[in-house]
Structure formats: structure tokens, C-alpha cells
Design a protein around this nucleic acid. Sequence first.
DNA 1: GACATTTCGATGCAACGGCATCAAACGGGC
DNA 2: GCCCGTTTGATGCCGTTGCATCGAAATGTC
Lengths: 143, 143
Amino acid sequence: MAMTTPAAITLLAWDRLLSASARALGHARRELKRGGLPPIEWYDILAALERRGPTRPRDLQSALGIEQYNLSRLLSRMAQAGLVTVTPAPGDARGQLVALTAEGTARRAAMWPAYAAAISQSIEPRLDSDARIALAGMLDRIG
Amino acid sequence: MAMTTPAAITLLAWDRLLSASARALGHARRELKRGGLPPIEWYDILAALERRGPTRPRDLQSALGIEQYNLSRLLSRMAQAGLVTVTPAPGDARGQLVALTAEGTARRAAMWPAYAAAISQSIEPRLDSDARIALAGMLDRIG
DNA sequence: GACATTTCGATGCAACGGCATCAAACGGGC
DNA sequence: GCCCGTTTGATGCCGTTGCATCGAAATGTC
């Protein structure tokens, strides 16, 4: 067995991290597209709004880790698609309040089966429950 | 303590996987940019060419998991930057042979310190050697 | 209260990626 | 040798992202 230096281990972990997440993300994206559904980014925003209720863009941004300009345009598209409403924020004339529409709620629900299936297919087949817990714990430290 | 169902564990792992890799990747990208260096994608191609010697685009594509059209354009840019040469492939008039230039080798070497530092900073601070091995093993199964 | 600083969100522009398609060349079957 | 399906790589089109910057409103300073 080859001697494995700490640095080499780090690189191996890096490599696996990038390729595993790229593969998994790509799979989920394709599955959603295959179902004629919106992209993952929309799901995250819709789900966040469902959890939090009407929210300021700025707060969405920090909660989801999206770039400001990116979120701005995502919200434009989602509003145009009728999934959210963007209204002036009460008490701050600069800002806005983003809220789910009924259609937005429905759309998020419609996305879930395809999305959940993709997630399960990526993660569950070869990791038992304990391994998943351990994996989440390690990744949590990296993040 | 809340009961944690298997499905919830899967979702937690998914969440951590995406956010950890996004954070780590973003950090590495920013560090490279901060040094006035080419993007990660270029590094991967340069490193692959250094390992493999002159290579057909098709082979790079499957080795690195890049889309065909994407690789085609990356190679154009890298050739224009003088980091690789693209010549007709001997024995196959459809194809090409991509080779590193001296400048390409130098550039890859110049990228490494910044890239390696970003990797270490993302992975090593809170995972010891054993944890990194375990992490790589789990991610390998997902990929 | 006037002025500088900070925060919020939009946007022009260029680079990049995804998709579909194309032309050229290869190779197998007959 | 000829045709047909396959492989290789490029590209037009469009949607998205990154970057820099802007204007407007809020907040802090004096």
C-alpha cells in the first residue's frame, strides 16, 4: 500500500468533493428540466419564502448565499412567471418585500417529487443512515 | 432532541454537500482571481495535459467530465492565450491533438500555490487526516 | 438640519454556459 | 468500392452570471 501523505489526502478529498457535488447537482438539474420544471435556484427561493413568509431581498440573499445582482434578476424572472410578488417594503422606501403567490406555492410543491427523487438517488444508494450523518457532520465543518 | 428520520438525514447531507462545495469552490475561484490567475477550469486542463502528455480533446473531455462544446471553447481561449497548442491529430483528419506549451506549464505552476492554499484553507482547518480519508471515501461512493 | 457614509436594489456590458445543429471524416457491412 | 451510421469538433443563438456602477433612500456625524 502506498504511503499517503496528509497533503495528498486533502487533495483527494477536494477532488471527490468537487466531482461528487458536480455530479449530484447536474443530475438534479437534468431531472427538473426533464419534468419541465424550474431550476433548483427557484426552488430554494420558493422554499425559503414558504418557511419565512414575506421577506426582504437582502435577507433572502444572506439566508441563501446568493449574489445580490443574481437574486435581483432571479426575482424578476420569478415575478414575471407569477410565482412571487414584489411590493414596496413598508417602512423602507428603498426596499421591497417578496411574497409567494398561490401559484408559487403550487409550483414549489410540483417540483418537490422530482427534486427529492434526484436527491435520494444521489445520496442514499450507497450510504446508510449513519454514514449520511457522518458525511453531513464533516461537510458542515468545511462550510 | 428531535427524532431524525432517514429522509431528513438525506436532505441534511444534500444541503451540506451543496453549500460546502459552493463555498469552497467560490473561495478557490476568488483566490485565483485575486492573484490575476486563470480560472480553475484552466488549471484542470493544464494539469491533465501535464500528466497525460499531448491528448485528444475527446479524451480530455471524458477524463475531466466537461461538456464537448465547453471544452472546445476553453481550448480556443487557452490556445489564444498561448498556453496550449492545437494541431491536427496524426491519423485522424477529424481530430486534434492538444499539447502544453512552455508557457502553459509555467502558468499551471504559477497557479498552484494560490490554488493549493485555497484547498488547504477549505479542508484542513477542521478535519484531521482520518476524517479527510473518511470524507473522501463517502464522497467517492456518491460520485 | 446639512453633509458624508452606508445600505438597498437595478442595470449595462461582457464573458460564459446550455442546446441544437452542422460539416467533415471515419469505419463497418455489404 | 459504396453507402450509412457514428465520431469528432465547431458554432449560432439565447439565457445566465460576473463585474462595475448607479441612483435613491436611510443612517450616522457634527
